[in-house]
Each structure stands twice: as C-alpha cells, then as structure tokens.
C-alpha cells in the first residue's frame, strides 16, 4: 500500500524551513566580527553565547514572518505571539539540533561547534549546567518517541501559535491556525506511526516540558542580565524585557 499522505499544512511548513547552512554562515560571520574587535571590547564566552542566541532569534523572526497564517496577522499580533514564545523556539531549536546531532556527551551549537558536556559542567555555573542537562533529557525523550522532521515543523508552529497569548486582535485566526496544525499533527502521527497510539499526546506533553524549561532559561538569563553579564541593545534583551513590561 502507498505510504500515508503528509497533511498539506505540514508540507507547507516543511517548505518554509530556513536553510540551516545559510543561518549557520550568517551567525558564524557575526560572531567572528565580534571576536575581531579590540581586546577591551571582546565578549566573554557567555556574552558570545548570548550573541549567538540573539542572532538565532533573528532567523526565528524571519522564519515566523514567512509562516502561513502568521503573515496574515497585523504586526501587533505578530509581536505578541513572538514575545510569548521566543525562548521556547530557541530551546526547541536547540533540542532538535541535538536530536539530529545524536551524541549524548556533547552539544552541537548553531555555529556547527561541538561542546563537550564535561566542558559545560566545568565552566558553566550549576544553574546553566542543570538547564543543559534538562534539555538533554528532553532530547532523549523525543528520540525515544522517534520525532521526525514533519512533526518537528508542526510542533514549532504550535509553539508560535499558542492560545496562551492574550489581547490578540485576530484571535480567530490564531485559533484557526492552532486547530489546523493540531489536526495535521494528529492525522500525521496516526497515519505514519499507527503502532505508537499515544504519540500525538506524548508530543504535546513534551511541548509543555519545553515551555517549562524555557521559562527557567528566561529566569536564568534575566538574572545574568541584572548582573550585567548579558550584552544589551539587541533583540534578545528586548524579548527578555517584553514579558516583564
């Protein structure tokens, strides 16, 4: 029998995925420019990681702008959706990269660099180290669920179109987007993984864990920001403040 179809929504989202090599090249160039500055201006390792996250956020905003439904929203609604989920999208992007990387003892960065977990344990503080380990646990759990690219793009879309967002002008469109993506994910998992009866629900439970982890990551970043360790005047800082103002 022919393989089950891939729902139209997922096919469209697959086409909208950014070119990873292009994103990587842009971020590497940006960080090298940073490192080319005079010694007194040079960022710390943590500062560079923040810069990397900031640049990854730019590509996330570009991806969102190209997204079905999202591009029909007014800029006010677009901002509310992104301010709500930016840290989840960063965490989910990191987790999916580790899924593809497939090594438990090291972390693959968006720049293509590989960092040993032992180096993170030695250099990062206990909070950051705990966050990285929690992310690794989530990677293992998603690996055991055999999450594929089709499900990844659909889950990412569901993170963007969260119904938690209040005061939207066009709530109806956001609800429609959510319902279409949920239906597509249910249809896809049931059709392609009939032996994993509960996969759809399991995947949504993982999204809740991504949300919880991203909240902790935001708290950590805000604490580092208050101690002056996060470079300012960038998208990362603006998003960090957005929920607090």
């Amino acid at each position: 029998s022919s393989p089950p179809d891939i729902p139209e929504v997922i096919l469209k989202l697959l086409q909208l995925e950014p070119d990873e090599a292009q994103v990587k090249g842009r971020i590497v160039a940006c960080l090298q420019q940073e490192q080319g500055k005079g010694r007194h201006e040079r960022l710390s390792t943590f500062g560079l990681m923040c810069k990397m996250a900031d640049q990854t956020l730019f590509s996330i905003v570009e991806w969102a702008r190209s997204c079905i439904f999202f591009k029909e929203l007014e800029v006010g609604d677009q901002m509310k959706l992104l301010q709500n989920c930016w840290s989840e999208l960063l965490v989910f992007d990191h987790i999916y990269r580790q899924l593809q990387h497939g090594k438990e003892q090291s972390v693959l960065l968006v720049t293509g660099q590989e960092v040993d977990m032992s180096a993170i344990a030695a250099q990062a503080g206990s909070i950051l180290n705990t966050l990285v380990l929690r992310a690794q646990e989530l990677v293992l759990h998603l690996h055991s669920l055999q999450v594929d690219r089709q499900e990844f793009v659909c889950l990412k879309f569901l993170i963007l179109f969260s119904l938690d967002v209040k005061y939207l002008e066009n709530h109806a469109l956001v609800r429609e987007a959510q319902e279409k993506a949920n239906a597509a994910l249910l249809e896809y998992t049931a059709g392609h993984y009939p032996h994993c009866a509960d996969k759809f629900r399991q995947l949504l439970l993982r999204l809740a864990e991504v949300r919880a982890l991203s909240m902790q990551a935001e708290e950590y970043l805000y604490h580092k920001h208050l101690s002056g360790e996060v470079p300012c005047n960038n998208l990362l800082i603006e998003m960090l403040h957005a929920k607090r103002t």
């Binding site: 730019f58 905003v61 570009e62 702008r65 800029v75 677009q78 901002m79 992104l82 301010q83 960038n234 998208l235 603006e238 998003m239 957005a242």
Partner: peptide, 18 residues
C-alpha cells in the same frame, strides 16, 4: 518619554528581502 523603537517591530515591518 519616547519609547525605545522596537527592534522586533522593525524586523517584522522590514521588506521581505531585507
């Protein structure tokens, strides 16, 4: 006090190929 121009808003309003 003039609000800081939002970088996110600028990005969202920029022309697609910017």
């Amino acid at each position: 006090e003039a609000e800081e121009p939002s970088l996110l808003k600028k990005l969202l309003l920029a022309p697609a190929n910017a």
